[in-house]
């Protein structure tokens, strides 16, 4: 059965290219434009990985990771940040929130897929 990945980014074009990259490898994809929309969609649906941008309106990615980790269904779901931010301070915030990886945009599809394959639990 295909694994499901959620991509959260306020840029519609980023959501589309991430979707294309993941779907080409047989993953199912759910998307959301910000943290609030993402939490609304995380209503118990099984996801195997959450990929989120950091800077977004309404709710940023780091808060989203913190909030999602509070939900029992997503406590052990691997989460990864996909952002233009490359500063160590921000990375530490992401790590503290519970993210397992940090990928700086623009990403190359093979590198994203490599990160995904390492993060998704069998």
């Amino acid at each position: 059965m295909a694994k499901t990945i959620m991509i959260v980014d306020d840029s519609a074009s980023i959501r589309k290219v991430v979707r294309l990259t993941l779907e080409s490898q047989g993953f199912d994809v759910i998307d959301a434009a910000d943290g609030v929309e993402a939490l609304k969609k995380l209503n118990g649906v099984k996801i195997h990985l959450l990929i989120t941008d950091v800077n977004m309106p309404n709710m940023d990615g780091i808060t989203l990771v913190q909030e999602a980790k509070k939900l029992p269904a997503y406590k052990f779901t691997p989460m990864m940040m996909l952002t233009t931010e490359a500063g160590d301070e921000k990375k530490m915030q992401g790590r503290a929130a519970g993210a397992k990886a940090w990928l700086v945009k623009p990403f190359q599809p093979p590198i994203l897929l490599n990160a995904v394959s390492k993060l998704i639990l069998p």
């Binding site: 233009t84 490359a86 990375k91 992401g94 790590r95 993210a99 397992k100 990886a101 940090w102 990928l103 700086v104 945009k105 623009p106 990403f107 190359q108 590198i111 490599n114 990160a115 390492k118």
Partner: peptide, 10 residues
């Protein structure tokens, strides 16, 4: 500066 693809695992 933004070469991207800077992947870090925690």
């Amino acid at each position: 500066e933004s070469k991207g693809d800077d992947l870090t695992f925690f």
